[in-house]
Design a protein around this nucleic acid. Structure first.
Lengths: 225, 225
DNA sequence: TTCAAACCTTACAACAACTGTAAGAGTTAA
DNA sequence: TTAACTCTTACAGTTGTTGTAAGGTTTGAA
């Protein structure tokens, strides 16, 4: 079942879209208010996301970026903003297609199909610019090479990549790797960091994990697009 | 170096496009006459193809289909035809994006970047219908789950999936796994088959490897699309 | 039905990869 | 200078992978 999530605040347009898409055989879920948006979108595990840019609280652009950083997509922006710079901005932030209202249903459906097909045959890779991480398989792709990471290495990389360009707190890493319950020696994180850095070194990704003294670690470099 | 191939018969437009793209840092190759088109496109190994629909001999649609059948892409159709049915047709035949002339250079470039980025990060997954195999990472994707296979399991699966729906000879598997040089006990293949089958069982892929007595093994089921 | 070839399963041990612990060295900033 | 913080290395327990070995099961033809 192909599931489509519509993020759109105009009630009437939303109903119309939903009707069109459901006739086409899609499973549709609509979301309007922001408070629940990000979480809802993620937990809905959509095959395609249709996103309006004019949302009440957080802008569509921000949602776009947040979703992409988490490897969620594809995102089709459907908006009444027909300015080129809006389109460029949206595409730059990670939107996969950009259609302006009014949009012929057939065009919308064709584009949805396209995106879905593309993503269905594609891995969702966390993208750090000059390398990609397959968070499910714990495999790192650097250029044409690939190396598989250990469980721990993968977890740390995932956290770092998802947080770019922020710093990941040590505490957070401890929670992710060893749970917050049991006690583990502080040192274990450092050891695993050393190991990860060494692994990254071996594939040409040197000095990419910066230590933020007292706080945590941060992934740097890797020109964001 | 990102290489773009332009298939366009209008000399002036071609020159203009080439100029725009080269300023952007792309390596550009232009093609006009059809006689050499398909071969040229393929041998040029482009990162992105810009395709006009109004070509003298073979239509852009046909080129579209031919390229897609060979797994070559992405294809961005850039045309003066602004009919919806042309767009739908092109997308259906495999075009990855469709822009109408006149098109703002920045929009074109943004779309090219998008497509290139998408394809550059795309995994080539071996597809067996109801599961996919990442042959580089030795990871099997079944629905939303993924399991990593051992080296041997991965090699066998790769051989089986690639051969579908044929039978893979035992000899061939021996060559792939242990080389043809040294002697290894016949039994080792059976053992590894048992292990692979057990692994597949655990993810709901039961009875998918059929033994062809005296010949080899065969992957079955998994509705091909 | 019988039987041998073909195939399957299980157990075992060697080996490699991964992980946490421990100890000591290096670095940072007040 | 110094104490807190961080890094590095070595070691051992654990787990996963692989080939070997031994014995059981299935198949198909006589």
């Amino acid at each position: 079942m192909v599931k489509i999530v519509i993020v759109e605040d105009d009630v009437f347009l939303r109903a119309e879209l939903q009707s069109i898409l459901e006739k086409e055989g899609y499973s549709v879920e609509s979301i309007s208010s922001f408070d629940t948006t990000l979480e809802d979108i993620i937990s809905a595990a959509p095959s395609v996301i249709i996103l309006d840019l004019n949302l009440p609280k957080l802008s569509g652009f921000q949602i776009c970026r947040a979703l992409k950083a988490r490897g969620i997509g594809p995102i089709l922006v459907l908006t009444s903003r027909n300015q080129l710079r809006d389109e460029l901005h949206a595409l730059d932030l990670g939107a996969d297609d950009y259609l302006t209202k009014p949009c012929h249903p057939k065009r919308l459906i064709a584009r949805i199909q396209k995106l879905h097909h593309l993503y269905a045959n594609m891995h969702v890779l966390l993208d750090a610019g000059d390398f990609q991480l397959d968070e499910k398989a714990n495999v790192l792709y650097v250029g044409k090479n690939s190396i598989s990471l250990s469980e721990n290495e993968g977890m740390i990389m995932k956290a770092l990549v998802k947080a770019v360009p922020s710093v990941v707190k040590k505490e957070e890493l401890f929670n992710q790797l060893w749970g917050s319950s049991e006690y583990v020696d502080e040192n274990i994180l450092q050891v695993n960091m050393t190991r990860l850095r060494k692994t990254l070194d071996e594939v040409g990704l040197s000095n990419r994990i910066k230590t933020v003294r007292g706080i945590g670690y941060q992934l740097i470099g890797g020109s964001c697009r």
